Amino acid sequence: MSSFKLGVINGCFFFVVVVVVVCLFVFPREVNHNFEDVRCKCICPPYRNISGNIYNINVTQKDCNCLHVVDPMPVPGHDVEAYCLLCECKYEERSSNTIKVTIIIYLSVVGALLVYMLFLLLVDPLIRKHDPYTQPLHNEEDSEEMRPHADAGLARGNTVLERVEGAQQRWKKQVQEQRKTVFDRHKLLS
């Protein structure tokens, strides 16, 4: 193989190794305290001369209410109850580990498909051989001469690539025959 192809293969391998190492350092096994899995979110609309605000605090589900979440309280003591009735508080849970695993699986699949695509781009020209019988059929004599050779080539299709090439050749023959009949009819009509 050429040095370019070896360089591309080595580059792909290096890329996969770097992605795995980065994933191991970015997504550590123990849960970070920066990414909390539970929170209470209170959305408080504007009240009198106070603008609306959103409050997020990590509390238990039983403490998920305006009195425990809104800190500092923007209204004086006698308006707290009216202000808290306007606020909508929701307890939210998520699994950051599940999110991390899903992202790692997704990136791994995309990376594997990219490596496979590069592999096919490099290996496909080596596997495919130039077949002189794949030239377009121009006239009837050429099609009669090439038909036995092409049929013999189609019979040996034991690998997937050969079967695909055989199907492609049959399709090309059908297209050429359709062109020939259309042009013959056109000549007949004119």
Rank of each mutant, 00 (worst) to 15 (best):
E36R: 10
V75F: 08
H68P: 00
A152V: 09
G11W: 10
V31R: 07
C66T: 10
H68D: 10
C64F: 09
P148N: 12
Y116K: 04
E165N: 12
L6V: 08
C64R: 07
Y116L: 15
N158G: 06
V59T: 15
V17K: 03
T134D: 15
R170S: 11
N97Q: 09
L137V: 02
H130I: 08
G157Y: 01
G157A: 15
C66A: 15
L85P: 01
V182S: 07
Q176L: 03
A152R: 12
E92N: 03
C40T: 06
V8S: 04
G157E: 01
A82F: 06
V80K: 14
K173I: 02
Y55D: 07
V8C: 05
A152F: 11
P76S: 11
Y83E: 04
A155Y: 12
C87Y: 02
I54M: 08
E30T: 14
G7P: 02
S108A: 13
T60M: 06
Q169N: 08
C84P: 10
R48N: 08
F27P: 00
C89N: 07
F14E: 01
L85Y: 04
V16E: 00
S3V: 06
P46G: 04
P148K: 12
L114M: 11
M1W: 11
F183V: 09
E36T: 13
I127H: 09
Q168W: 05
Y116Q: 05
N49G: 01
L137C: 08
Y106L: 09
G52S: 10
P125W: 11
V123D: 09
Y55Q: 03
E93R: 11
I99F: 13
T181I: 08
R147P: 00
F35R: 07
L107G: 01
V110L: 15
K90G: 06
Q174R: 11
P148L: 06
W171C: 03
F13W: 05
V110R: 13
K100H: 08
Q61C: 01
C12D: 00
S3Q: 09
V110P: 00
S2D: 15
L6E: 09
M117E: 03
K62P: 01
L107N: 13
G7M: 09
C64P: 10
F13I: 14
V38S: 12
T134A: 06
M146H: 12
F25L: 15
T134M: 11
I99Y: 14
C40M: 02
L114I: 13
V160N: 08
V26P: 00
T102N: 13
N97K: 07
E93A: 02
V18D: 01
I50K: 14
C44F: 01
E88Y: 02
Y55C: 03
T102R: 04
E88G: 01
Y83C: 10
K172M: 03
N58P: 06
S2V: 04
C42Y: 01
K173V: 05
E92Y: 10
K5E: 14
A150D: 12
N32E: 14
N10K: 08
F15C: 12
F183N: 04
V115H: 02
V22P: 02
I50D: 04
V16W: 00
V69E: 05
F119I: 03
K62M: 07
I99R: 03
V8H: 04
Y91N: 05
I43R: 07
D71N: 12
V175Y: 13
Y106N: 02
P125A: 00
N158P: 00
E145A: 11
I99W: 10
E165H: 07
E81K: 13
T181K: 08
P72I: 05
S51A: 09
V123W: 13
